[in-house]
Design a protein around this nucleic acid. Sequence first.
DNA 1: AGATATTCATTGCATTTGCAACGATTGTCA
DNA 2: TGACAATCGTTGCAAATGCAATGAATATCT
Lengths: 168, 168
Amino acid sequence: MPHRFPEFDLQRFLAYRLARAAQHLSEELARRYRDRFGISIPEWRVLAHLAYSGDVSVRDIEIRTGMEKSQVSRAAARLEAAGHVAKQVNECDRRLVSLSLTPGGCDLMAELLPVALAYQAEIEQRLGGALAGFEAGLDRLIGAAEDPADDRGDNRVERREERHDPAA
Amino acid sequence: MPHRFPEFDLQRFLAYRLARAAQHLSEELARRYRDRFGISIPEWRVLAHLAYSGDVSVRDIEIRTGMEKSQVSRAAARLEAAGHVAKQVNECDRRLVSLSLTPGGCDLMAELLPVALAYQAEIEQRLGGALAGFEAGLDRLIGAAEDPADDRGDNRVERREERHDPAA
DNA sequence: AGATATTCATTGCATTTGCAACGATTGTCA
DNA sequence: TGACAATCGTTGCAAATGCAATGAATATCT
């Protein structure tokens, strides 16, 4: 067949290879979470961010994770229905919804975190000596993704008078 | 608030960071393709494999890209409707559908490839000195994902003889 | 050869996703 | 102050996705 471009190999295309690797890791982790805890990836991300940061708004999670706000909102709704997360209107700015872990959600995270850490260790082992170089590349790609020229982003999150716990 | 696990930072979690970077690159490329050519990512992948390998079956693309076969089938159907791809039953094995670029699809690829190559160069520039280390890490992660029992080079539809896969 | 199992591509169906629009609230500025 | 703009979270809706089931074709085995 004459219609070919053998000089272009998709398997060497960085955007494609990155997507493949990410898909594989995400599915592997998602399977462990879904099978054992019934947690999806969006729900896991919301939980993890919540566990790390304490009370946060939907918008905070949207900014820090790059998820769609509707995806965050729906994940939060499912987590609330499951009793893992509590939603509360922020009294300083009644447009904001403050998300927080319930005691039950805290217990769930105590089970989820060892699984996540074990998986992280597994990936690091797979990478072996390539770990440092791989992370350096990720830093550059993600650094370029978080548009630093846009000052609205950071300011808007922190501009609101300090809410919630001042714990660092 | 007591319910926190500040020792776990999602931003340092490899599966998460990889997903973020991949999402960013894919969306960046997808925007260029969609805006200028009306091509989605699944369609681009099918086209690229077709251009590289000549005639291939839906199953070949499924195996080599890790896409769902329904996704490949639907992308091929859209590409056929758009006149970029031709579908033809393989006479050696009438279960297989042989996909091939039409002359129009060939012209489209001639426009798409420079965009892809320019984007690849852009990413390589972003990675700079981290490029080699990053690719080494990708190789390890993808290598663990791929089925190690498939030979390269003869994935075309013509092969139909040696088909023995007891269990995988 | 005939019966059964496998493989391939497509399609139905339920779920998820992205995007726009909305109501509610707060910020801006004349 | 009051009109107008911007922000936040939710929801409606069309499109995409994953999975199972289907029908057609081939492989395998006795």
